[in-house]
Design a protein around this nucleic acid. Structure first.
Lengths: 236, 236
DNA sequence: AAGCCTATTAAGTACGACGTATTCAAGTGG
DNA sequence: CCACTTGAATACGTCGTACTTAATAGGCTT
């Protein structure tokens, strides 16, 4: 509720969220048109509010508004798939598996490089936090403490991304959090996390602490490979 | 006018562009507040238009609008730095060097992985286009044909990103285009492109055509290293 | 001095009007 | 019969005003 693509309270947020979810879920096919008045009536909102919502959807490149024709849904490959709200919508919608795969592949590309940079740029404080997160993962890796494990896992990857010193990487923290959360909440509710993965995280923290960029990168790449393989088993 | 973060024609676009540019350039510091009525007067626009603009800026997480207080500029590290318009604004603004570096680092992480995927997923047609682009680079790499070279360079990287089959990668085509354009338009207006880089592009096309994922990835990583080194020479 | 209450402020929402570009179709001429 | 022009219809774009709501500041009470 506090962060990102949260529903919010106002009328605007409600309409935006509902419409965005419907579009990304495919309820309105690319090419189909919506009329502002229709939307206004459907949500019992004024045209003012609907227009503002449309402008935001337009900025996400989900739709295009043209005179005399209406608000047309754009082709999928033109969407701003990096917008946090779009990501949330798509993860909640029908093509969630595809989205999860896309994001995991993106992670597998970005995180190793981020870890390598972090190894040379991380402050002592960040190193301490990273070690703490890794130890937290170890502590919670047994006995169905998936909640706590997830929390430390997210913290770990967020710290690495932040410590990389690259703002573009840092902004992917929310994405990683969404992916990890989604994974936990769907599949592995039964068995504990893979011990090998836990070990790898500890080793990454170690490598970062020692400033060994190559090792941090290689180890993180192994984590990524594991995540991709896990996805291959579970997703179509 | 046709693509991305282009000014457009309407009043809305004009106000949005001017305000977005001003904010990203640091004319309005994070924490400072803007009032809707002020903006409306400043641009001689109605409150309606300004409100729609503010909603879009809010969706980019550049600002936050709160009752009784106004529109406050958010901290830099909360901005949606992946929004094409934000990227364009920042590339046109004062911290252009920092932005160029961030984007190049992102490229260096993503493009090698994308090339590896492309090697196994590219269609024959895409392979042909890729080869054609590489050959175009060779043809235009001598004799101050920087315009043509840039065009083929952009095409090359765009094809690789598209052929990777990952929508997140594909959407970075515009970013790469912006970076390459920016690089050409600023520094190397004098000497021809590095012959080694040209050769690497040809070899990448070759590797993709042959389905050699590891080689395509490694070669693209070399291109990325070159781009980073080039940046070190020119930027602070 | 601490806490409550009220007035103020600026955004949120709504409605009605007119401007304007774009489309479609009828009509005209070749 | 086809191509072009012209006009009407349409749905977004912009505007102004009025009212509502939430957050803040400042004064009042205890």
């Amino acid at each position: 509720m506090t962060t990102d693509g949260s529903p919010g309270q106002g009328l605007h947020s409600r309409v935006l969220d509902t419409l965005g979810l419907a579009i990304t879920a495919g309820d309105h096919r690319p090419g189909s048109v919506l009329r502002t008045d229709e939307i206004a009536e459907r949500f019992d909102a004024s045209r003012t509010v609907v227009r503002e919502v449309v402008r935001v959807l337009e900025s996400m490149r989900l739709v295009e508004s043209r005179r005399r024709v209406g608000v047309t849904v754009r082709p999928t490959d033109e969407w701003n798939v990096y917008d946090p709200r779009v990501i949330v919508w798509r993860l909640a919608g029908t093509d969630r598996p595809r989205q999860l795969r896309s994001l995991t592949v993106l992670r597998s590309a970005v995180e190793p490089v981020a870890a390598g940079l972090a190894a040379t740029l991380a402050t002592p404080e960040q190193c301490a936090e990273l070690t703490e997160a890794a130890l937290g993962m170890v502590r919670t890796s047994r006995g169905h403490q998936l909640d706590g494990y997830l929390r430390h896992d997210i913290a770990f990857h967020r710290i690495v991304l932040n410590a990389s010193g690259n703002e573009m990487f840092a902004r992917l923290g929310d994405v990683v959090a969404a992916v990890l959360t989604g994974r936990t909440r769907h599949e592995v509710m039964f068995h504990d996390p893979d011990p090998a993965a836990v070990t790898l995280h500890v080793q990454v923290a170690e490598a970062v602490r020692e400033g060994d960029a190559a090792r941090a990168e290689a180890l993180t790449r192994q984590i990524a490979v594991g995540a991709l393989e896990e996805l291959d088993v579970l997703a179509p």
